[in-house]
Simulated assay, not measured.
Amino acid sequence: MWFVDAAHCVYGTYLCCRWSILRVFVRAASGLQRFNVLGAWNAVIRTFVSVTNTTVVNTDTMCARLRKIAAIRSVGPVTVVLYNARYQRNKVVKALAAELSITLLYRPSYSPNRNLIERLWRFLKRKSVYGQYHPNFAAFKAAIEDTLSKLSTTHAGARPSLMTLNFQELDDVSLLAA
């Protein structure tokens, strides 16, 4: 089972909480450049596959991600859990998924408590961009790619508690209370 989503990291300074007796000024980068990471996390074999670009996320990038998932041969059926974005829910993607014997399981519009890869995006941003100044877009991109490349080695210790299959379930609550 693969959990799929895209993270759109915009070049800039991501604020975080820092405690200090003195006032601390954080240098800020300005720019409208975006680094897109289209990732897929396999919850069973604990493997991460990504397609990255600096342009736009569209049907072609989604198809490239499906081909990368299919290239990793696993035992049993392949299911991809994803959102209802247009580039993920069109005829081309559905036809390619059928050709590659991949089952597509669409989740509600935004349900981070049911998509495991959202936890990975939070971890990625904390490790590579929060509270850090990157002098140029190349350094920003390199920091993200470095964190992604170390998921199976350096950051493997933090993953078991973060990437568990425990999902938060919310009870139905009546909004019309007496």
Score class of each variant (00 low, 15 high):
172 D>A: 14
166 N>P: 04
2 W>E: 05
18 R>E: 15
131 G>V: 15
5 D>C: 02
143 A>V: 11
175 L>A: 09
84 N>G: 10
43 A>Q: 01
5 D>L: 07
176 L>I: 14
78 V>S: 01
145 E>Q: 15
148 L>N: 02
40 A>I: 08
58 N>L: 10
71 A>D: 13
127 K>N: 15
75 V>T: 11
126 R>Q: 12
51 V>A: 02
139 A>G: 02
105 L>F: 11
52 T>L: 12
13 T>Y: 12
59 T>W: 09
13 T>C: 12
5 D>E: 08
61 T>Y: 06
178 A>F: 09
163 M>A: 08
15 L>R: 02
1 M>A: 04
108 P>Q: 00
16 C>A: 13
58 N>P: 10
90 N>C: 06
161 S>Q: 14
120 L>M: 02
142 A>V: 06
19 W>R: 09
37 V>L: 07
125 K>Y: 10
165 L>I: 06
96 L>E: 01
164 T>H: 08
177 A>P: 01
83 Y>S: 15
33 Q>A: 12
119 R>S: 03
71 A>V: 06
157 G>T: 15
33 Q>P: 11
72 I>D: 00
2 W>H: 08
61 T>I: 11
95 A>T: 15
162 L>T: 10
46 R>T: 03
19 W>C: 03
47 T>F: 07
129 V>R: 05
128 S>W: 04
117 I>T: 08
66 L>R: 01
65 R>P: 00
89 R>I: 13
13 T>L: 15
178 A>S: 14
37 V>W: 09
174 S>F: 14
164 T>Q: 05
94 K>A: 14
173 V>R: 10
131 G>F: 13
26 V>K: 09
151 L>K: 06
140 F>Q: 01
35 F>I: 12
92 V>S: 11
143 A>Y: 02
94 K>L: 09
117 I>K: 05
97 A>T: 04
37 V>I: 11
72 I>N: 00
104 L>V: 04
104 L>E: 00
80 V>C: 00
176 L>W: 13
14 Y>V: 12
13 T>M: 15
52 T>K: 13
114 R>F: 15
175 L>Y: 12
130 Y>S: 08
15 L>P: 00
132 Q>K: 15
66 L>V: 10
31 G>I: 09
13 T>N: 04
45 I>Y: 00
143 A>T: 03
140 F>N: 00
97 A>W: 03
121 W>M: 05
96 L>Y: 03
164 T>S: 05
142 A>T: 14
108 P>N: 01
161 S>R: 13
144 I>K: 01
78 V>W: 00
71 A>G: 14
34 R>N: 14
103 T>K: 01
177 A>D: 13
8 H>C: 05
145 E>F: 08
177 A>C: 07
50 S>L: 04
84 N>E: 07
128 S>E: 02
77 P>R: 02
158 A>G: 14
128 S>P: 09
